[in-house]
Amino acid sequence: MDKTITDPATAIADIPAGATLAVGGFGLCGIPETLIEALESAGVGDLDVVSNNCGVDDWGLGRLLAAGRIRRVTASYVGENKEFARQYLAGELEVELTPQGSLAERLRAGGCGIPAFYTPAGLGTPVADGSMPLRYSADGTVGVHAPAKEMRTFEGRDYILEHAITTDYALVHAAIGDRHGNLVFHASAGNFNALCAMAGKITIAEVERLVEPGEIPADQVHVPGVFVQRVVPVASVDKRIEKLTVRQPISA
């Protein structure tokens, strides 16, 4: 029952080239940076990543991207990473863009064993009609379009079919975790972490504070240990601010 692994490199050592990964966090908030760093050091490549976004140019998943380790990304927002845009437009990276709520529900559905669901989100847009570029060619033309989504009408309203997401592995970050894998997230750092933890076949959680089983009240557990296979305590975490905005000082 003790799922603790003290060495991040050991925790991710069996992730192979070509694996699918669900990676938690929102912007730079709540990202599993220690596990991402270990994966970068391991040299694993050809990765198919599912995450709300892809970090920034020098942090988070942006580090793997800059090193050429990511083949495909499923995300809802990618506007903070210039290298991401360069690779996508140059035909080096395959990108599936999906509405944020749909992405969240696709991960949740995968974790709950629901194969697909209908939603109005994206209806009448390139997300649904097959005109969204999945991959560009080197000459700038569209090489591959995302497939058109199945549509169905319920009670006079149209919906599109979205398929659930499950991945080989999930990397998540939690404020507190116990040795059985029960996790607690702090505030907005929980965004997408719980969903990714559910969607991964093997979920690896880095935790800022490791406690003993029973120390987390049952009603405060955000992700139960049944979804988590490995727990990695991290001594310190560099929590960067994605966009720092400060007020100009008021002159005397």
Rank of each mutant, 00 (worst) to 15 (best):
V223L: 07
L97K: 14
R63A: 01
H222M: 13
C29Q: 12
K239A: 05
L61R: 07
A67D: 09
I204E: 12
E150S: 13
Q229A: 15
W59D: 11
L171Q: 04
I36A: 07
L89F: 15
R106T: 07
D57I: 06
Y169M: 02
V221F: 12
F84D: 10
V56G: 02
G79D: 09
N81V: 08
A199Y: 00
I176G: 01
A75W: 06
Y136V: 01
A75Y: 01
V237P: 00
E206Q: 15
D57R: 01
V226F: 04
I12S: 08
H163Y: 14
Q220T: 11
G27Y: 02
E208H: 07
V231W: 00
A128G: 08
T6F: 15
D129S: 00
T119A: 07
C29V: 14
C196G: 07
V228S: 03
R63Q: 05
R240S: 02
W59C: 05
L123Y: 06
G111E: 03
S76R: 07
C54Y: 13
V246Q: 15
E33V: 15
R247L: 12
R86S: 13
P233W: 03
K149N: 06
L93P: 03
S41H: 11
G101I: 05
C196D: 02
I12N: 02
A90K: 11
S41C: 04
